[in-house]
Each structure stands twice: as structure tokens, then as C-alpha cells.
Amino acid sequence: MVKSMKKNKQFERAVHGLFLILGLVTVASVLVITVYLVISGIPAILEIGLWDFLFGDTWDPASSDPKFGILPFILSSIYGTAGALVLGVPIGFLTAVFLSKKASPKVKEIMSGAVSLLAGIPSVVYGLVGMMVLVPGIRDLFGLPDGASLMAAIVVLAIMILPSIIKVSITALDAVPKEYEDASLALGATPTETWFRVSVPAAKSGIATAVVLGVGRAIGEAMAVMMVSGNVANMPSLFQSVRFLTTAVSSGMGYADGLYREALFSIALVLFLFIMMINAVLNFFLKGEKHE
């Protein structure tokens, strides 16, 4: 009896130790990535100068007088993400309200399944379909010489962020106590008034979380964006080819060397800082939810 208890204790201790080590692997990965990005990203910034790097509007690393201004990438990423939100948030949010509050169980099941499927499609497939369908479509619709543009990237990103916005919003809306809605209906409010004036406000931190997750997904996406945006380092304009922060890194990495290569690390560092900021915002919302 005593012996087996001792054995049990040892076993428990070993299991705890194992879990701790596995947990530390994750933490170590984050630390290694952060440290590596900072160490490899700083030199180029120092050489180019922080101001010229962040706010220079010309990216021409291969010429005899190289320019390393990444403002076009920063703005493309910001505009692209913002555009995706403008299109994706209303669609995703209203879909979530419909599925959570109005749809019959059968419709909800089918549509939720479709949304999950959308989340599982690899980004290269989004890029491929975007390239074959969306890019020519935009070219013909707006009479452009080339449809590969910021606009195309925005549409693709808007679709790509729909699943996270819809799913997280539905979870938040489903969690609104039925008592709130009953109280509103009993006061003579219509179902629509009830959803938008009681259910949605009660789920607002969850919905905000959904939007922030969408931002994270959009700003970090590289492959699909590269395939539909034309990948030219222009200052962003809706119907011109643009290059995002992500695609700047991935498209240059294969052949760049010297300062050019180092500058790509610096771009990655900037992207990383953006993602960190988004995470901070996300944590803020999640904390807010806990306090309520």
C-alpha cells in the first residue's frame, strides 16, 4: 500500500515534469524567434536609419544607389487589412447573428459546416482561385491592364477572415443568456431589435475578439496575397499592384544578399511587432470579458 503510493507519487512527478518540459518548448520557440528577429533585424535598420527605413517611400535594393524604404509595404499591409475588415466584418458579423439567432438548426448545421470548410482551405488555394477568377474579373470589370492589385488582395483576405469572425462571433452570441432576450421580447421589442440592442451589445467583447483575430489573420497572410496582388513595391493604390510586408520578405528571401537580405529580416521584425500589438489588443479584450 505505502509502496504503491510512493510509486504513484513518483509517477505523478514524472508526468508533471514532462508536461512542464513540453510547455517550455512552446515558450522557448517564441523566445528564440523573438531574439533571433531582433538580433538579425536591428543591423540593417541601424545602417539604413530608422526613419529612412520605416518612412522611405522607395524600395529599390538592387540598384547602384539602393533604397530601402518600406513605407509602401507597411501601408499596403495596413490598407489591405483595413479593406478586408471593411468587407469581411459586416458580412461575417451579420452571418453570425443570422446563424446564432435566426437560422433553423438544420440551416445552422449546414452553414456552420461550410464555414469550417472555408477555414480549412489552404491559403495557396485561395491564391490560386483568386488568380484564375478574381484577378481577370477585376481586370475586366474595371477595365484595367492588369487585375492583380490591392483590390484583389482585399477581396481574398476578406473571404479568408470570414471563418474566424463568424465562428468566434457565433460563440459569443450563443453565450448570451436567453433571459436577456426574453426580457426584451416581453417588453414588446421585436426579435430584430432584441438581437441588435441586447444580444449584440452583451456579446460585444467576443465580437471584438473575432475582429482582432481577423486582423491577425489578414496581416500575417503571405501566400494568397502574393498570388493576387501583383507583388510590385508601389505605394498602395486600390487598382495597382502592391507588395505587403509578408510578401516582401517571402519574395526577396530566395536571392537577396548583403544589406538587402538583412533588410528583409528587418521587415520581418516590423511585421512581428505588428502582430505583437494585435495580440496585446486581443488580450485586452479577453481580459475585459473576464472582468465583466
Binding site: E179, Y180, A183, V198, P201, A202
Partner: peptide, 13 residues
């Protein structure tokens, strides 16, 4: 015809 429920259910406002 107004209604008051079993469990107090003020809105979170």
C-alpha cells in the same frame, strides 16, 4: 401585458 421573470434578469447595461 408586461412580464417579470422568476430570475431577476436586468440587461447588462
Amino acid at each position: 401585458i408586461g412580464m417579470v421573470f422568476q430570475k431577476p434578469n436586468p440587461f447588462p447595461m
